[in-house]
Amino acid sequence: MQAGSVHGVLFAVAVLVLVGIGVVTIGDQWWWLPPVASIHGATIDALFTVTLVVTGIVFILVHLLLAYFVWRYRARSPQQQAYFYLENRPLEVVYTLVPALTLTSLIAVGTRAWFRIHSSPPAEAMPVRVIGEQFAWRFQYPGADGTLGRFHPRFISEENPFGLDPEDPASHDDIITTELHVPLNRPVVAYINSKDVLHSFFVPALRVKQDAVPGMTTRFWFIPTQTGTYDIPCAELCGQGHYIMRGQMVVESNAAFEAWLAQQPTFSTMVGLSH
């Protein structure tokens, strides 16, 4: 046995063990995505699974080849000759085209889903504004008129910490809350703003993530499909309290939602606007 060739065997074994661990823990879903609770979320999960299968096959095949070659062609005797071999054009073309075509298919399905997720929200979608600030989320509902009042940080004052425009009549009946309640199975379109720094509106269970950017409004719409209470962690570093910036989303029946909303004070009562 040539010096060091035992390490070829060891390497082959180590690679096989590592691949085995990966295949078992991931294939058997020991730790997995939170149960999905939105319609587009199911699409994301399906794409995730397809990509996992495709990359999983490559992961296993390449590692098997690596382990096999390292074991099989380790230097064992002084007589052994390496095979002088420069290139193989047809093989190279195949292993350029196969990844290219595979990736193209993944791009195709991925971007199709991407455009569907970011399509215009349905007309009946309930608008809600998500406002990020260090280190909390606030939510603005349109109230009886169905229109969200204007938001801009320049309206923020001690009396009006929310940043709604008191001059905008649409804002008067708006409702501002610290919890996000949404009705089950109804499209919700979130308009996302920030008062201060970047934040990211992340609802893991609903597969929603969209940054809150000061100076612009971002948008994400979704249809919740499971009732429950879900965490809304901030997913973009926003300062010392980033890790405690967590809101809650409650998905409930339409009746429960309406009852909850009716109990919330309006913007004009909260900041004491007189008419």
Binding site: Q2, G4, S5, H7, G8, F11, V62, L65, L66, F69, V70, Y73, R74, A75, Q80, Q81, A82, Y83, Y85, N88, L91, E92, Y95, T96, P99, A100, L103
Partner: peptide
């Protein structure tokens, strides 16, 4: 794609070599 090509080329280099470690 070029990253994949490079990986396959490393495997191709190992194939039928006389590997020292």
């Amino acid at each position: 794609v070029p990253s994949a090509v490079k990986t396959f080329n490393w495997l191709g280099t190992l194939w039928r070599g006389k590997l020292r470690f």
